[in-house]
Nucleic acid binder design. Structure first.
Lengths: 211, 211
DNA sequence: GTTTCAGTCAAACGTTCGTTTTAATCAAAC
DNA sequence: GTTTGATTAAAACGAACGTTTGACTGAAAC
């Protein structure tokens, strides 16, 4: 058996409940109940509720960061100056690829990410490591070469737009399933992915705003 | 004196604290302390913490909705088929105009809006009225005429993108002031407004994604 | 002068929270 | 068979929460 099966079952339960109810809206008791574990197991395996959230966050975000990094490496191996479309796809694509078992097309995971990223509490945002900043800086440099004439400030603004569009769209669909345009399954996620790439490529390629 | 000065002071305090710490992260005691009022005043004037949030939400969102509606009316009075740029500006502009006294360029109000919109709790999202859906449907129809060939589903996706970009950008700046590109004040907000219009006009005008 | 009533106040209610403590469990090591 | 060390279990901890209560206030109404 894996090192302490309860540990991963708690991670799974916390993953789901944090996404559905937020960090403060989820009690440790609710997590251990869903995981079929004892209340004290969270303290034993993770130390505290905040450290449990950090573990959940790392488990879901690290693969995305790795995929974004690998995608950029793949592009740069071909040409030193990739096209905007390719950069957009390499950066935003991994956000659509996360879909663990039981996740409705990755929407629940997206909900978890937004929950973590948008929570104002310090303890919720303090899980982050240096890897996230590194990959963002690398894409920033690549986009800067693909879009000469764009001021660094406006470029940063546009990169924030990429994250906003990819994350928020799927969150809304998750919260209000009536918004789901297509039947659930692989089809819906794939359509949203293509829409996002179209939308964001056009947005990123816009001429610079006059200062 | 206005009808119960404590009432508006509680509204102001709740506005600030909900934006800074979220709904669940803000205790009624913290609100009444900041407002200089008694703990029971919230129950007396609003009924409950959830109803206080609803009052705060209505107070901040209603002017935005009215401005969006008026802007569309103004455009439609000139021509039945406004350009995409004008529609983007009329829709996204009011989100940049909200800056009550003490708000750092409207960033705190944006934070409040995102807090309300992204909170998973039912009681937080249940403040909404029919006015919000109405104005969105009107813009949807106007964008549909300006962008023929776009499927209704992709059009809805793009409209969600508008909200995502305008809201999320300013939230991030609010949470991490180090991201602020320009010196604070009227200049920073105005630059972001122009960047957003450029970004979103290009995105909305993109040719339809092949099905 | 008395009544009235919206508003304020201190105090307490019962509940839920995250965390800690202490004892029980159980397979592997010796 | 006993010891060991990691894991689980039950119970309790103090603190913080939203809400309610009942007394108090002070100016207007009569």
């Amino acid at each position: 058996m894996a090192p302490s099966d309860t540990r991963t079952q708690i991670l799974d339960a916390a993953d789901r409940l944090f996404a559905e109810r937020g960090y403060r809206g989820t009690s440790v008791r609710a997590i251990t109940d869903l995981a079929g574990a004892n209340l004290a197991a969270v303290g034993y395996h993770f130390g505290s509720k905040a450290q449990l959230l950090a573990a959940v966050a790392r488990r879901v975000i690290e693969p995305i960061n790795a995929a974004q990094c690998a995608g950029l490496d793949r592009l740069l191996a071909r040409t030193p100056d990739p096209a905007v479309t390719d950069l957009v796809e390499a950066f935003a694509g991994p956000l659509f690829d996360v879909m663990p078992a039981g996740d409705e097309g990755g929407a629940r995971t997206s909900r978890l990410i937004v929950t973590i990223l948008s929570d104002p509490a310090e303890e919720v945002r303090s899980w982050t490591g240096p890897a996230e900043d590194t990959v963002r800086e690398r894409y920033l440099a690549a986009f800067g070469r693909a879009l000469p004439g764009l001021s660094p400030e406006e470029l940063r603004f546009r990169m924030r737009g990429i994250l906003a569009v990819t994350a928020v769209d799927r969150v809304e669909v998750y919260q209000r399933p009536s918004l789901a345009c297509l039947s659930p399954g692989a089809g819906a996620g794939e359509a949203a992915r293509q829409w996002a790439i179209t939308f964001l490529t056009a947005a990123m390629s816009a001429p610079p705003t006059g200062t």
